[in-house]
Amino acid sequence: MNRTWSKQRERGSPFAIRLIRWIALHCGRGVARCALYPITAYFLLLAGPQRRASGDYLRRVLGRKPALWQTAKHIHTFAATILDRIYWLTDQHERFDIRIHRSDVIFDQLKKGQGCILLGSHLGSFEALRALALSQAHFTLKVLMYRDHNQTLTRMLEALNPDLAATVIDLGGPNALLRVHESLARGDWIGMLGDRLGASDKVCHCRFLGEDTAFPAGPVLLAASLQVPVILFFGLYRGGNRYDLYFERLADRITVDRRQRQAAVQQWTQRYADRLEHYLRRAPYNWFNFYDYWEDRAPHRNIALGNVADRPE
């Protein structure tokens, strides 16, 4: 298995997802959280590729082979944040103990009245940010993502909060980033996750947990093209009902010189990878990329060449 998260079968049947939603909404979070134990056990036993990917990741971050309970804790943390998405999206924020760190970064940007890129990751919960943006409406958040992946879950979440679909810019078509451009010109904030590769993404190899792996170059290229600030965002789940939201300013403006394009994109993407690693070490079980993150050696399209011939099928 290489970096084929998009080809991975979505685990969890529509029935199971509906069942969890029903329990979550009718029986409360406490009861629903009890259901996380059998769910964790199910994935621990039956989701082989995901379990192996978790094991590989935990070995890197913990520096030793993980014990079974550590793999279980990893899966359980993931399941818990998926469950909480239901509460985030139905505006039940009072359930959570939310601590926002460096909110000044957000307020400074709001004062400028200008759009920006909020660059997150699959570390922890992006939903926390999305839900807060939707309900508090200090700024309009649009989320750039591949809408086709995880269809069952996406539909279920959109059914819970009909406003959600309108906030998504689907990365599927060639005009996706024209929409982003227009949206930023209106002063919207654009959320995106910078740690997963799409099949045809331009890539940038970065040092991450001690080994090189490919990151998408898109977020940095986009910020450079449109000359907008980039704010990093990490929403870490701390257990119980606690979430810590961290904001950091990555760049006010990314300038990429034509002749040193690759070096500049590399430098900024590496900075993102470094901050991701920093937070990941503080909350290792929040890493929700359950596929072989380091295995990719495929010749993805190199940003400097931009040549079709380098492109994998």
Binding site: P174, N175, L178, H181, S200, K202, L222, V308
Partner: peptide
């Protein structure tokens, strides 16, 4: 297939068109 461009390229092309030809491509 063909040129093999992606959405980042589409954006770069749209920006270049607006600079050179004075109109915006609309999504």
């Amino acid at each position: 297939t063909g040129w093999g461009l992606d959405s980042i390229d589409a954006l770069e092309i749209a920006l270049a068109i607006s600079r050179k030809y004075g109109f915006q491509l609309r999504s």
